[in-house]
Every structure is written in C-alpha cells, then in structure tokens.
Design a binder for these strands. Structure first.
Lengths: 217, 217
DNA sequence: CTCCCGGGTAACTGGTTGGTTACTTTGCGC
DNA sequence: GCGCAAAGTAACCAACCAGTTACCCGGGAG
C-alpha cells in the first residue's frame, strides 16, 4: 500500500523542512479552494502556488478531498481559537453582547475565505466535515459565552425572556455571513461599494442595532 | 461561425418541441448546477437528465457558462415574480412586515436550489450576473414594498425611527438564507433535524421575533 | 568520506470533459 | 406524399486533471 498521509510511521515527528512545505501547501490550498471551490480548484495550481510539487501534496495529504478536509479543519480551529480569547464574563450583559456581535462581524469580514469554505462545504452537504474527528467535537466557545450572557441579561432584566440561545447564535452569524458571502450579488442590486470600510462599518452598526433592539425586554 | 445560442436568425419563434427540449434542459441544469455548482456540474449529465443530447444543449445555450447564466436569470425572475404578488400595501404595518418576513423565509426554505445558485455565483464574484442584461435591472418588488411598510410604520409610531431599508432588507434575507444555506454545517454542531418541519417553523418564528422586536420604537 | 533515506522533481497515464462534426430522423408547408 | 429545414443522434477530439511512477539530491549519522 502507498504511504498515504503519513511520511513513515504513524505521526512521525516530521522534520522542520517537511513541516514548512506542509504549511505552504495548506496556505496555498486555502487560497485556491476559497477562490474556486473544491471542484474548481486545481491540484497542480495548489502545488505550484506553494512552490512545491504535486508529489509532496499527495505525500502529505493523500488526496484532494483529504486536503480539503484538513484546510477546513484548520479554518474552524482558527476561528474557535480566537473565540476562546473573548472575555465577556466580567462585562455587563449589554456590553458583553456587543462584544460578541462585534467579534463575529469583524472576524467574518476579515476572513471571507472561511465564508467561502463553509458555503462550499454546505454544497457538499457537509460530507467531509461529518467525517472529521475534530470539528464535530469542537464546541463553539462563542456559543457557550452567548448562553451565559443571555442568562445574566435575562436575570438582570436587561434582556427579554425566552430567547433561544441557538437561534440567536445562528442569527448573529447570519447577519454577518450573508452580507460577506453575498457581497457581489447584492452589489448588482445596490451598486458596488458594499465592501468599503464605510459600508462594512454601517453593516456592523446595523447588526448591532438588530440584535440589541431585539433583545430589549 | 457556429449558430451559437440562436437556432436560425435572431429570436426565431422556436417550435413547440424545441421549446420543450429547451425547458427540460433548463430544469435539468438547475438540478445539476444547484447540487454540484458550476465547476462540479457535468454537461453530459445535464443533457442526459433532460433526456436530450449535448448537441442540443450547445445549440440552445452556446456554452456551459451561458447556460449557467440563463438558469440564474430564470431563478431570479421566478422569485421576483412571486414577490410581485405580495400585497402588503393595504395591511397595517406590523401585519405587512410579518408577511414580508414570512414570505421570504418560506420562499428560501422551499427553494434551496436558489440559495445554492446564489452562493456559487458569489464564489465567482457575480461575474456572470454582472454580464446579465436582465438581472441588474430587475428591481426587487419586496425591497420596494419594504420601503413603503417601513415608512408607514415609522409615521404611525409603531416602528422605530431611522431604520435603513436596505440594511433591513439584507437582514431579512440573511436570517433565512444563512439557515438554509448552512443547514449541513450547522447540523454538525447542533445535531441533525434542523431541516425538519418543526425546526423550520421554530426558525421562522425566531426570524419574525427578531425583525419585529428590533423594529419596536 | 560515504552510505542512506527523507524530501524533492519531472515525466507519464488513464479516464474525463467541454465542445464539435458528420450524419439521421421528424414534422410542417405545399 | 414530398421536399426540406429544424431537431436530434452518436462518434469523435484535444485539452485537462487527479493521481502515480521512476528517478535525483542533499545532509546527517557512523
């Protein structure tokens, strides 16, 4: 059998040079996949962009789909890691909620590749993600934080009662994700410029208004 | 030069049989494109699914990309047409707003293919849509209706002041679109069942709560 | 110095894919 | 019913593409 994704035996330490190549391949794959999708991306282009060779790509990742999954897992892990730094427990509920909405919007705006990756993966009905050992177990720190803030605000009488944390979490993701994801088609209706700093700031302010306006008791 | 997208001379009437074949090709293309994306869809499969031949596909549409654009234009036109039937001018503002949100959510839930098409087109930075003569000029009746309802509600003191119609329009689209678009990846976090009738109804209720809650003065 | 192996290269392959060409069938006007 | 253009078929093609194979190189251990 071919050596597949492992270089020699299971989880060998991997030399510094090999690790660097692997990372360059991963970076290149993120760019290509998010720009052209899974089907549209070309393995040769990824290798070329990484300044590496197809052989190395297959040595490290085994297949195009396995590479896709690895890229996706890394993107999820990166977002979860940033979420973990969100310190909202000490803040008063309204301030805390503001932080959560702001964090999410800015992360989404700063990482359109993650948005593109998610859209693509959903086209495939999350077939790769479901096979992932990591991601399904990777609970969202932001969701957890949201639950806490919601409970505190409700108890303190500054938020309305009966809010479903999951639904609100999805809504907070939605108001940012949809805007970034559909920038170009929305641009054909509202004219270009939706991606400008000013437009992004306006959208962020609106997202904040919607969430906090909704949450009023 | 080849005859391209026109069968004989410009906009010939097209016989009933040819028209039927064209429509079958269009239907098949919608299914394939929305399931696999532009790059992932196969021209042969579209022709086969339509019970037709690749030759006919190229006779009618000229190229895969032209077919894609035609499918996209048809999908937009279908939604705009349904929006046109939305009679909200006679309703009191809150009821009217309810209708708009409900219409949008249900249309999105009933037409996941349109969602998939939009996501794909955004991956291509709306390159095809921008070349379309129709779509950019196809103003949204729902956006127009929203402006009216918003103005009436504001004047009547039942809605808050200073709401940006475009931002709210995008938000109303977002709360439905994101949920449908990301059903499968969200499913890896929250477990399956997000697509069930009960879950859809819960999401619709939440979307309504958010919009109307936000709009309170 | 030299052996050796992980890391790297380039050329190849078999199946696919968008698009075309040469040819046959269908049905409508006369 | 017949002539002929429109509609349809199938075989073909060149480019492409994921994945593989045969081979090379450089540097660390002995």
């Amino acid at each position: 059998m071919p050596d597949g994704a492992r270089s020699s035996r299971a989880d060998a330490p991997l030399s510094a040079r090999a690790e660097a190549t692997r990372q360059r391949l991963l970076d290149a794959a993120l760019v290509e996949f998010s720009a052209k999708g899974l089907a549209g991306a070309r393995v040769d282009e990824i290798a070329a962009r990484a300044g590496a060779n197809k052989r190395m790509l297959y040595a490290h990742f085994g297949s195009k789909e396995e590479l896709w999954l690895t890229v996706l897992e890394a993107a999820y892990a990166a977002k979860r890691a940033e979420e973990r730094d969100l310190a909202v427990d000490a803040l008063p509920p309204v301030e805390a909620m503001r932080r959560l909405v702001q964090f999410n919007f800015r992360y989404t705006a700063a990482h359109p590749e993650f948005v593109a990756l998610l859209n693509q993966e959903n086209l495939h009905r999350a077939a790769h993600l479901k096979r992932s050992g990591q991601v399904p177990a990777m609970y969202s720190p932001m969701l957890e934080a949201l639950r806490g803030v919601l409970a505190r605000g409700e108890a303190g009488g500054v938020f309305r009662h009966g809010v479903d944390a999951m639904q609100l979490y999805i809504t907070i993701l939605a108001v940012g994700h949809f805007y970034i994801s559909n920038l170009h088609t929305l641009g054909t209706i509202f004219g270009a410029g939706l991606g400008s700093q000013a437009a992004l700031a306006a959208r962020e302010a609106h997202a904040m208004d919607v969430v906090l306006g909704y949450l009023r008791p």
